[in-house]
Design a protein around this nucleic acid. Sequence first.
DNA 1: TCACATCATGAGCTAATGCTCTTAACAATA
DNA 2: TATTGTTAAGAGCATTAGCTCATGATGTGA
Lengths: 318, 318
Amino acid sequence: MSKKLQQENQRLDDAARAGWLYYVAGKTQDDIAKRLNTSRQSAQRLVALAVSEGLVKVRLDHPIARCMELADAIKQRFGLKFCDVVPALNDDPNSTLGLGQAGAAVIERELKSDTPKTIAFGTGRVLRACADEIALMHCPQHKIVSLVGNITSDGAATRYDVAVHIADRIKAQHYPMPLPVIASSEEERQQLHQQAHIARILMLAKRADVTFVGIGNLGQSSPLHVDGFIDNDEMGTLAVSGAAGEIISWVYNLEGAIVDCEINRRVTSTPLTLSSDKPVVGIAAGLNKSNAILGALRSKLINALITNETTAAYLLTA
Amino acid sequence: MSKKLQQENQRLDDAARAGWLYYVAGKTQDDIAKRLNTSRQSAQRLVALAVSEGLVKVRLDHPIARCMELADAIKQRFGLKFCDVVPALNDDPNSTLGLGQAGAAVIERELKSDTPKTIAFGTGRVLRACADEIALMHCPQHKIVSLVGNITSDGAATRYDVAVHIADRIKAQHYPMPLPVIASSEEERQQLHQQAHIARILMLAKRADVTFVGIGNLGQSSPLHVDGFIDNDEMGTLAVSGAAGEIISWVYNLEGAIVDCEINRRVTSTPLTLSSDKPVVGIAAGLNKSNAILGALRSKLINALITNETTAAYLLTA
DNA sequence: TCACATCATGAGCTAATGCTCTTAACAATA
DNA sequence: TATTGTTAAGAGCATTAGCTCATGATGTGA
């Protein structure tokens, strides 16, 4: 077993070397092959491996004018603390490409601080992408806290537990929320939340210096539906009641008001604060999410946004 | 003026966009050209501009990255043909773990060549470790030559005769140096070196296509002392005269100058060449050897180095 | 030990890229 | 207005990269 692992590590080592020589030193794959004593093809594979394993991180440091303008307009319009807009591809209006890097950049900025911070995270694909883009660093001074339960309806761990990945990458203390995402009843939620260790987490989350959350829409592809927390009937009810999106499983409508529904009565996520004085950053893009994002902005549940060009442009027409 | 600046900014904007599309979105330059409404060549130029303007930041998240950076820095600083840095695996600042494998890899690369080569070797623990790591192969085309005498002061064979082991592993011709490491006098050295068969070896060594040497320090644990070539008195004299290290028993100081001393007058090793156009690779690590390595680099006795992370970092602070 | 599966390797081909050289466009100046 | 110097654009070519397929090595379980 250990030998296999050893080999695997050796291979990653070589991949890292190849990646470095290729991207940092600007060598050709032929050169790299010579140096690593292998064929050009293998060198190519190593470089590809370095990329696919996420060892190579590319980031673009330039405020593209149009994106800046959009970001500024959105910041003004919705009274945000800040707004980042990344360039978009116009072929897929729902693409979230680039959000990971952009989010990671913002998160890293927070992490660079020497003064200890508590940073809270929601869940979701996009946040997970951010987590994967965060550089390996040593930040034991910070605390990473989860806003959302990490247990699904059938008792398994949730798939996108972001906080644990981030804490792992930056060697920080991690405070998970050891709860099912949705309690079986309003009473159960209350009971759960009164347990001392849960109450501590909730307090930590409430006092977080910065919060990062995804923004979910409520279609068939919504995590709440996919993970079985909302069945088709309930989805219909939600649609009728005007639900537009969810943030850490709290459901709100297009005007930004929390919807009076079964989910909101039972969800165990940290209660949300309206118009927090600390930054609460929503990260989301895609026209299929535009209403969810719009509702989130109006709700004042978030006070900062990272999105892309297409989405930003659409939000401004609304 | 302002118009020119405006244009320049627009260009950088486009460059950033092109860079983003290329590196983050993974589009081809053709695609980018279409999107930005320009020719493929211009797109290529924009991408190149984004890189040269430093808009694109590539980062490699792997411990190896630091080694590569250190290696590159050392190569630049000391004007080396190449430099390899292996990760420091443990806390022992004097560990030479990993040097064997790294050295062996470099040696094997030379051996893989079909054109016959003469490869010269010094002695020492680290080189011996390299020898042991070299794969069994069949290379009768190459010649392995010793740079150092293989007889100790009491007539026994030296313990770390590296060349013989390597020749053995790769089935190559081996040319040992049948001499005591230190002659009894300057005159004896001259006599020995004038013998035809010795002169042939010296010539072969001098013309070697590649040379691999260890780097020794001059403390109590120095091979020269352990093997009885330097007694305590002489060691004191050397220390006073500023001796910092030795390469195939030639003693030099911290500035890299050959020291005027008894050892250097009597040592029978192949005379060293300054700034050889052929690779002369020093293999050594450990903070206890740092001055010896520093002197060696400054002396131009070697023009390539294999060391480890800790040592490399130290060398750069010097 | 043999059959089978899995994986790594290198050849060969095509697409993508980088570079150079020529031509066109433009601005500054006499 | 003609001239000259400077810059950008495009054509064409050589290099580099990425991909697929055939092959051989390695490992695994009956």
